[in-house]
Amino acid sequence: MRRFTCGAEKQYGGPPPYQQGSSQYQGFGGFARQDPPPPRGADPQLWSWFASVDKDQSGSITADELQRALVNGDWTSFDLDTVKLLMNIFDTDRSGTIGFNEFTGLWKYIKDWQGVFLHFDRDRSGTIDGRELEQALNQFGFRLTPQLLVLLQRKYGSVPVPAAARGYPAAAAPGITFDRFVRACVVVKQLTESFSALDTDRDGWVQLNYEKFLETVLTLP
């Protein structure tokens, strides 16, 4: 069964080369499938992937359809929170689904993040460890303290960390898969931008009452 994957062709099982009229695109799962013709000017390969993700052929993709289609390099599915974050970014008309034009932006976004992930996954483990995470965030302009880096690893690591193990060193923290790496970086960016908007005098301090604090956090995707 064809899968719309999140990884580069070799490591993540990306889309196979598309050839116009190729028999591999004439059916789906061994059964004949008649996908609707692509819109004028649309990339045929990208339209083929969109149609394969749009299981009910509604012309738009739901969060559930997107989650079933996206997988990491170890073939684990994207977690739902990351899928919802992507939906929120690219559902520009706030319909709750993603149309083909929105899907085109999402596809490019994921491909761009693949390059970032592969660049910082120095040991080619398929996950991002603490040192690689620090290097990535520093490159993005976010210099976090060691304590915050450990918290990020614990929150977004691919294996849940039991409460009893919260004192373990940062080096022992679980690696971060592609989907969680994207989410961690986007969340840090969003929180930093929200803080900067409140820090009007740029002194690194913000005075918030409880209501304003909740409002700031709850309005984040």
Rank of each mutant, 00 (worst) to 15 (best):
R122Q: 13
T82Q: 03
W75L: 14
F78T: 01
L86D: 04
S58M: 10
S158F: 06
V71T: 11
G115K: 15
L86Q: 03
Q67P: 09
T145Q: 14
P160V: 00
D93Q: 10
L86S: 05
A163C: 07
A173M: 14
L86K: 01
D123T: 15
K55A: 12
G157D: 03
D129G: 03
W107I: 02
F103W: 14
G59W: 07
D74E: 11
K55C: 06
Q67A: 08
Q153W: 00
A63Q: 12
V116G: 00
K111P: 04
R143M: 11
T104R: 15
I128G: 05
S125R: 15
Q57C: 09
G141E: 06
D93A: 07
G126Y: 13
L70E: 02
L85C: 07
Y109F: 13
E65N: 10
F120C: 00
F120N: 02
G96H: 09
D56K: 10
N138K: 12
R122S: 08
D81S: 13
N101G: 01
K108S: 10
L149T: 09
E134F: 01
S60Q: 10
A165C: 02
E102N: 09
G141P: 05
V71A: 07
L151D: 00
R143G: 03
E134Q: 14
I61T: 03
T104G: 11
G105S: 02
P169D: 07
G115P: 06
L133Q: 07
P162Q: 04
G167T: 11
S58P: 01
T62S: 15
V159K: 11
G96I: 05
D54G: 04
E65W: 07
D56G: 15
A165M: 15
G59C: 12
G141Q: 03
D64G: 02
F103I: 07
M87V: 14
S58H: 07
D123V: 13
Q139G: 00
D56S: 09
Y156S: 01
A163E: 15
A170C: 01
G141N: 03
D123S: 12
T76Y: 05
T82C: 07
T127W: 09
L106C: 10
Y156Q: 02
I61A: 01
A173C: 15
L106I: 03
R131M: 15
F140E: 01
V71I: 08
Q114V: 10
D56Y: 12
E132Y: 05
L151R: 12
L144N: 08
D74C: 09
V116H: 07
